[in-house]
Design a protein around this nucleic acid. Structure first.
Lengths: 262, 262
DNA sequence: TTGCTCCTCACGTCACGTGAGGTGGC
DNA sequence: TTGCTCCTCACGTCACGTGAGGTGGC
């Protein structure tokens, strides 16, 4: 009764799609006329509209086949699953719209919300954009290496930004980016950093320390990372490590000197 | 700094996808370490998150490439288009959910709303499910052959269902499905159908007639379709055609008889 | 004869998935 | 030595799109 292009037009499918559904076994081959042309009836249109409805809902053709061949109970259950999938995909697309709106804001897009909040406060405090970008990259690297720690570390930094000594130290570190690595002010800065470190350790307990979120690999990575960005920062990290080990293990250092000289 | 599996994990991509983006020219190849391993930095993660955001919003990779390489104006315009696409896709998915809920109701899924409304009224009037299914298939076939007419035809039928004579005629046609094609009651039924046809023509004007929505091809298709479903219906269509041509062109028929006998 | 619809291969597309076979540091 | 991560081909997948070459009714 109907030609393949007529059923295609009536169902909103392409001729090729209808033939594909025959090839997949999704739709039985209809009778042919004497020219070998397929001739379709109303039931074929009904079947095709059902297939189209499921396919455009994102159901793979193989699953449509088993779904249509299954028992009524399986069928009903499958439809429920498909509907739930659609609901979730709608939610996902809505999320993608929000993500898209932040495409030019890598802080929000690539960082956990807590770290992005820290960045906003650092910007408000007056850190340079260059240093902010460096810190952002630092957060990203640490998040990539040890994602479990990042939330807590960000929350920790956020809290200590209430401390004025910490804020002033950060501003000085910002300014130090362009200093020579031999600049004598770096030693004072390192001393101040370790002082703050010890005060924090006293207030928060031993498990939290300045830069305490960095496990071994994160810390050495960040040291390299800082040194590449600014030789002065590289030197600063070295000085901090020296002062800290001097204060933490004075006897060990003495022992080591003895061993070396002996 | 970071290995390919670390950036993959950090961005929610697969290792293969990252390599694919290199191959597509979407992401520059990073430097290699002495083992030939790719080493990534924070900016790579930012770039990958941007690519992922666009790709999972359904933007083809080729378009992401031109989009990221374009001018700021093109870029902003592209983002607007992408967002609009997302909005439309969400609407489409919501429509698919509604379609899915009607998957077991071919009348609503395959027919224009007006025709589905007619079917509901025919069911209320008391037509058998068999005849209703036949009518439904008839609507589908006519809609496939001449989709422009179907809306008007359905509206027409809907209006005339207010007429009691029409309703009784439909119920008798329903009952006639199982009659023998030689049943003498078919002639009375055909006479009644043509009577109604003439009354409708008088009331609505010549352009509207009983079954007036059927153009030539639709009518011959429906006649075949009826005859296959029920021999009695096939005979009924023949009788209607005979009576109608007898009333419309009495002299022509007489002429033809003279010609044949001469 | 020309134009249109239909037919059947069969290769192309898109964004990767999935082994196949091999290398380098612990 | 073993196990793990990485590397580069290269073929597979899914739902068709797109010619390629041919047929049949007006």
């Amino acid at each position: 009764l109907l030609s393949i292009s007529q059923v295609a037009a009536a169902t909103g499918l392409t001729v090729r799609a209808v033939r594909h559904y025959h090839a997949c076994g999704l739709l039985a081959e209809p009778p042919r006329d004497r020219s070998g042309y397929r001739r379709y009836g109303a039931t074929d249109i009904i079947a095709l509209v059902r297939i189209r409805t499921l396919a455009s809902a994102g159901v793979p053709l193989a699953r449509i086949k088993t779904l249509l061949e299954g028992t009524p109970a399986e069928y009903t259950e499958s439809l429920r699953t498909v509907d739930e999938d659609l609901r979730l995909r709608i939610r996902a697309l809505e999320q993608h719209r929000r993500d898209l709106a932040q495409l030019d804001d890598p802080e929000r897009l690539c960082l956990p919300a807590a770290a992005a909040d820290v960045q906003d406060r650092l910007r408000a405090i007056g850190l340079s954009e260059r240093t902010l970008a460096h810190f952002r990259d630092g957060w990203i690297l640490v998040a990539a290496i040890s994602p479990e720690e990042i939330e807590e570390a960000a929350a920790w930094t956020y809290r200590w930004l209430d401390d004025e000594t910490y804020r002033r130290l950060l501003l000085e570190v910002d300014a130090a980016a362009d200093w020579s690595p031999e600049d004598p002010r770096l030693e004072a800065l390192a001393e101040a950093a370790v002082d703050l470190d010890e005060r924090i350790r006293a207030e928060e307990g031993d498990q939290a320390e300045f830069n305490g979120y960095q496990d071994g690999s994160s810390r050495s990575l960040l040291n390299t990372f800082n040194a590449v960005a600014s030789p002065a920062w590289g030197r600063l990290d070295e000085l901090i490590a020296q002062i800290r080990s001097g204060r933490d293990h004075p006897e060990t250092v003495a022992d080591r000197l003895r061993t070396t000289s002996g």
